[in-house]
């Protein structure tokens, strides 16, 4: 590839990118979602600065258990006297980490399987489709529970369990898009030029399904965070790390809700809702921008 051709292509990509950014910016809900998300990510990264770990150390804290919100503890304390705001900050790290990395795994598997199921024919397609169907019909929560009990305990197990169980929908969507792309005459032209499977998938199919994958990503992140909370709530998470799910579990175990300690139940619950909502807002806007047929609806 030569410089002028490359430069021209780069300029076009840049122009397209700014266009997409401008389109997204024209959706106020997406801006709010993206802004909040950025804030939450920054807070999660700054957790060690804002709330040093030793302030959550049960042996060093002075506060009583189940204190209601006050100037000292904005969101009150948990049954062992730890600051709920601190737990929330530290818990966001695990929740976001699991959400992002599990989604990454799910997207890669989903895209690869989806494209394979759409591109190939005959036996390959039949086998790939049955695998997708298997993961589609097995309840992902049950499968995730099984996986996280079989594998060793830890955050990475949760990531794998969620990643492996939540790619099937993406694969189906990608397959549908692949099928429509494959019938386009430009695929035929490419074949007539001598292209093989790798070229067609890499140059024509992958770029065409990417927008869908991107939009799906943001939607999957939300459900991955919920799934992580669920697993932690069921006691299948890593007991040594805080996450919003494990906070809810502690709340359940200590009877916080029935005892009227609302701050300890509501805080992680609302946090989960906000993050998932933000991802959904951004995801919907992204979908509308990248898929022009959804515009003006």
């Amino acid at each position: 590839m030569t410089t002028s051709g490359q430069a021209a292509i780069r300029a076009r990509r840049r122009a397209r990118f700014t266009e997409v950014v401008r389109e997204i910016a024209s959706h106020p809900s997406a801006l709010i979602g993206a802004g909040l998300l950025l804030l939450i990510v920054v807070l999660a990264l700054l957790a060690p600065v804002l709330m040093p770990m030793d302030r959550l150390d049960v042996t060093k804290i002075t506060a009583h258990g189940n204190e209601s919100p006050s100037g000292g503890h904005w969101l009150g304390t948990d049954p062992s006297g730890r600051d709920v705001l601190g737990l929330l900050l530290w818990g966001s790290r695990a929740s976001l980490l699991v959400g992002f990395s599990a989604t990454a795994i799910a997207m890669v598997i989903g895209t690869v399987f989806g494209m394979a199921a759409g591109h190939f024919t005959g036996l390959t397609r039949a086998v790939v489709l049955r695998i997708i169907d298997f993961f589609l019909v097995v309840p992902s929560l049950v499968l995730a529970i099984v996986l996280s009990t079989v594998l060793s305990r830890g955050l990475s197990t949760i990531v794998i369990a969620i990643g492996v169980t939540s790619w099937a929908q993406t694969a189906r969507v990608v397959r549908a898009q692949t099928l429509t792309i494959e019938t386009r005459p430009y695929i035929e032209r490419s074949r007539a030029l001598g292209a093989g499977d790798r070229h067609i998938i890499g140059k024509h199919v992958l770029p065409a399904v990417m927008p869908l994958v991107m939009a799906n990503t943001t939607l999957t992140v939300g459900s991955a965070i919920i799934l992580e909370s669920t697993l932690a709530f069921l006691g299948l998470g890593d007991p040594t790390t805080f996450s919003w799910g494990s906070m809810l579990k502690t709340a359940l175990d200590t009877g916080a809700a029935t005892a009227g300690y609302w701050w300890f139940v509501l805080a992680p619950g609302v946090a989960i809702v906000i993050v998932v909502l933000c991802f959904t807002l951004v995801g919907r806007a992204l979908e509308a921008v990248l898929n022009p047929t959804l515009r003006s609806r």
Partner: peptide
């Protein structure tokens, strides 16, 4: 091979 519909036989994303 030259196809019937030039609009469809070019990938709209490719320069």
């Amino acid at each position: 091979y030259v196809l019937q519909d030039p609009t469809a036989s070019l990938n709209p994303k490719h320069t």
